[in-house]
């Protein structure tokens, strides 16, 4: 898409905003609609739009496939790890009061934040990984082909 000047400029402006919005949705999920799943998708969209408008190689340079694959597993680990931690310190699985035994409500806040982060990381990784998997096979299409 070398000659799509408007697309390229707008994308450059938008990508940062998309990431910022994703982080807002991620960490503000306690107060407003949203959460890990939506934030992960929005975050992935940032990378995907970058890969679509510029080149796949550019996107892969920013967010290399090996890192994407690690991140897919990392999110689940963060989530399940929270549960295992609460088991280890003597609470039931995924009881967030374990994180801050002195104030269970605060522990719940932290716990929700952490597991949502785990969900967000996994969803980002999976979406970007699927996009990479599909885009790596597609032949370079000319605009007229659509």
């Amino acid at each position: 898409m070398r000659h799509h000047l408007i697309l390229r400029v707008i994308t450059k402006l938008l990508v940062g905003t998309i990431f910022l919005f994703a982080l807002y949705v991620q960490f503000h999920g306690d107060y407003s609609p949203g959460g890990g799943f939506q934030a992960g998708v929005i975050m992935a969209v940032g990378f995907i739009i970058y890969g679509l408008v510029f080149k796949l190689e550019k996107a892969k340079a920013v967010f290399p496939p090996w890192l994407v694959h690690k991140i897919v597993a990392l999110g689940v680990l963060v989530y399940a790890g929270t549960g295992v931690y609460s088991l280890l310190v003597g609470y039931t699985f995924l009881d967030y009061a374990a994180i801050d035994p002195h104030s269970p409500v605060h522990g719940q806040h932290l716990g929700i934040l952490i597991v949502e982060l785990g969900v967000g990381i996994t969803v980002t990784g999976v979406m970007v990984a699927i996009y990479y998997a599909f885009a790596a096979h597609a032949p370079n299409l000319k605009d007229e082909d659509w």
Binding site: D30, G35, V76, I112, V115
Partner: peptide, 28 residues
């Protein structure tokens, strides 16, 4: 118990934490 304004997040992540873990595993 949780004191989070968005009840949906509280239910999803805390009361229904197992389900959400399962969903994450499904996505994975």
């Amino acid at each position: 118990e949780i004191d989070v304004p968005n009840a949906v997040t509280a239910i999803l992540a805390s009361y229904r934490g197992y389900d959400t873990l399962g969903e994450t595993a499904v996505v994975f």
